[in-house]
Design a binder for these strands. Sequence first.
DNA 1: AACCTGATCGGAAGCGCTTTCATGACTGGC
DNA 2: GCCAGTCATGAAAGCGCTTCCGATCAGGTT
Lengths: 360, 360
Amino acid sequence: MRLKHAKRRTARAAPGPGRNASIQDVAASANVSIATVSRVLNTPDLVAADTAERVRRAIDQLNFRPNRFAQGLMTRRSRILGVGVPDLHGEFYSALLRGADDEARRRGYHLLVTSGVGGKSSDGHMGAMLGLVDGVALMITEPNEKLLEVTRRSDLPIVLLDAEVNGAVRDTILVDHEAGAAEAAQHLLKTVEPSRCFFVGGPRENFDTARRAKAFADAVRMHIAARTPPRAGDTTVLGPDQIVYGDYSVNWGGIWARDCIACGRLEGAGVLAGNDEIAYGIMHAALDAGLSVPGDVKIIGFDDTRLCSLVRPTLSTVRVPLQDIGAAAVSALIRRVETPDAEPQRIRLKTTLINRESGG
Amino acid sequence: MRLKHAKRRTARAAPGPGRNASIQDVAASANVSIATVSRVLNTPDLVAADTAERVRRAIDQLNFRPNRFAQGLMTRRSRILGVGVPDLHGEFYSALLRGADDEARRRGYHLLVTSGVGGKSSDGHMGAMLGLVDGVALMITEPNEKLLEVTRRSDLPIVLLDAEVNGAVRDTILVDHEAGAAEAAQHLLKTVEPSRCFFVGGPRENFDTARRAKAFADAVRMHIAARTPPRAGDTTVLGPDQIVYGDYSVNWGGIWARDCIACGRLEGAGVLAGNDEIAYGIMHAALDAGLSVPGDVKIIGFDDTRLCSLVRPTLSTVRVPLQDIGAAAVSALIRRVETPDAEPQRIRLKTTLINRESGG
DNA sequence: AACCTGATCGGAAGCGCTTTCATGACTGGC
DNA sequence: GCCAGTCATGAAAGCGCTTCCGATCAGGTT
């Protein structure tokens, strides 16, 4: 037997398995209206204690969870935050993500992660993401007009990680690469001649490398200018080979070091690397060539990834608080989402020189 | 002048800035009904070519993007996949996530990442996640009844990473740890006496460590049983100290190695470590003690993280295709989401012994 | 001429929720 | 005993979309 054209207007099947309980079911079960159920959830103060209790029991019993889509449709909030990073490879982003995720969960938000930000095919994907999230934390490491344009025109809350966007006043999490690079330079300059100090960076266009390079150069120049008495031949112009660029890889560090060794210039040098991997590459090439670290050459890395304490000799490095960056980004983003009119914030996180073995 | 109590029933403000264009706006602009607009988006075949074209123009012009919440409310799909891992720390999960993200974006899905799966406070967070995603890829490394119970009772599509759940027939991505461990053992046994072969694992409860340990022991026993002629004193019982457990850290590897050295038992040994970090710890302690690797002691790691090719001597290891695991998980999950009635799948991924320096 | 068929489209229901507005029951002050 | 002022609650209007159903029309079939 089968009902033919059964009237289905308002009748609804019992919330058995296969269908989650809806607010309707709860309301029916607690003998109140759906409005009251909603109030119990969102504004409990507006409902009488005993009613609320009854509703809560029904909720538990039916295992009711508000449908997030319906909620989102009304409130225009999803409690999801987008996180866009250029890449998911390696220690670096994994630490960042970890900080972000911890903070997000603490605040009852979820993280929608997407990598390849700035890549070619990322536009559509980003677009789709914008419709789902309450805000976006974006990490951009190289200039990318298209992406910045999107962020500028979007009215979605955005915080920028470690990148300044000229023209737009936005929440921004900054890392004080300058102080870190300067501190590292000063440390090297204690025992190394300014002319023997090198900065071996990542890609020239990379924001971080650029800032670290500039601060390094400034520190070296300042050191020269300040020392008394001046020495013969002192010049505040750095040699063109003292600041070089490549990429963020062990390989590039090795290449540079071997070149340098070939010219006999690595011995007695002090090197600040653009990141830990480069530093490791340099150190390794030096050791392979029979140089001692830090005896013959002093090396300082950047970021303080796990690598630093694993390798021997251990790597001195400039610690960048990656987890804190992630956490701060999420925190700032939530603040903007929840209080859209708040003043834009610029949070600046400190770096720390970590003296281990390689830096002397 | 201001309109007082203007009638607002059906009138709606123009879709200026501050409000995104809705399907209504598109319909009005293209002079069709919203049903037609929807069809253009979802079932273009049902719309006349010229009408569709007109609608598409309106969509472009108004920069219309369907509201994902409204869509989700109707379709019960979000095109978001949940990924739950125990931890976000380190190379391991970062590689996995990368594979997952690549595959997801290729298929037009997004990833909602959550760590701390299996942790104490993760329940509520997981619960909230379940309402948002089309399915979940779960990585569990240790027994966790509560979590498994949740997965069992949920009708949400789930794929399990590298964990078997007895009783439930589920899509599962498995890694052939057994083959990898056996291959590594056999490699060591070529030059090392069975009684001098060790497995230094991570936590005893950890699924992976348990499986690797068992396969290692089996391989050693089988080697003893198979060799002809049998030697005096051959026994297929491994010494209790040949399979040991600790945690997945460099530190633990170092501790074990130093203990072993103290008893004079490391020289001439062959060691399979539970992961690369342990292997590195062992290798380092050995080198520090003046032993040569692989001359005096042969060491093989597990996972093939970046560390292996960075350190010197380079680490032989059993490669686990982390990125492939992530990609396979997402792929299987999408399959289940889109064809819920498909047969449950068990995908088994191969490991590969990577011979570098430390393994001899 | 009456009928059927398929292609195309609009009307309208309804997904599950939040929120406004109206209602009714009490309360205290006169 | 009556009116203003709470307080607790319900009815109902949508949020923006998908999809079922039916209307219309052109063109072919009997």
